[in-house]
Design a protein around this nucleic acid. Structure first.
Lengths: 119, 119
DNA sequence: ATGGGTTATGTTTGGGCAAACATAACGGTG
DNA sequence: CACCGTTATGTTTGCCCAAACATAACCCAT
């Protein structure tokens, strides 16, 4: 590819991957980061603020996630002390760990292919 | 991941990759297919019809492609016998071949990771 | 010199999707 | 029992990007 490009160093292979269910998306990098923020803050609303997205959007993503999993990846509680909260379940942590692995290997793939297209 | 999913066989890893330049997208699966149709038909307009996209969109993609490459990947001719036409240059064929390779290796990556998340 | 099929290019319309907005429900706490 | 912060959920607005529409330019053939 190098000889086709005016500045090969400015080009790179990039992309996205996600786990897809029967009909809709299940888990990608966006949802992964959302889970991480929920884990860090214990709240969907705080996670949404941290990521600069609306609470509704974050909540919808959580719904989609839980609806497709055999058991909930996050557990929410409404009302009560400090209004409620949300925690990532052990299942959620496992999904987190597995997708982090996929993501890391994907980044390695992209880096390798970028090297190849520059040589 | 298997134990987290109600029907592991219905889930798979999927995704997209593309070569990105300094500012804009350079070459992805859509443009690849467009090049292939241009090669097969010798015409941007016929390729557009075959792919179910507007001529303008196809033409814009060709512009973007040629503008970013050191030398044109497709050569167009206006007017003349049968109104004109478009051919894929040797540089275009090389880009085609290289991106097909990337795409094939990417599909292999996805298949491997899908196997992994089902086990 | 007219017609035909293609490339070339600007303008307008439309549709889908995310953001924004608006409320209700919840349940400890003081 | 009123309050607070959070979850829960429906409705409306806005925006971006693609599709659709509209024309011009080109040049060989007849």
């Amino acid at each position: 590819m190098k000889n086709l490009l005016p500045d090969a160093a400015a080009f790179r292979l990039t992309g996205r991957v996600w786990v897809e269910g029967a009909t809709e998306r299940f888990l990608g990098i966006g949802r992964l980061e959302l889970l991480e923020h929920i884990q860090a803050t214990g709240s969907i609303s705080k996670a949404a603020v941290a990521m600069g997205m609306s609470y509704k959007r974050a909540w919808d993503l959580v719904q989609s996630l839980n609806a497709q999993a055999a058991r909930p990846l996050v557990a929410t509680q409404t009302g009560g002390k400090s209004g409620g909260g949300t925690v990532v379940t052990p299942e959620g942590e496992q999904a987190l760990a597995e997708f982090r692995g996929i993501q890391a290997r994907f980044q390695e793939f992209l880096a390798e292919e970028t090297r190849r297209l520059r040589e």
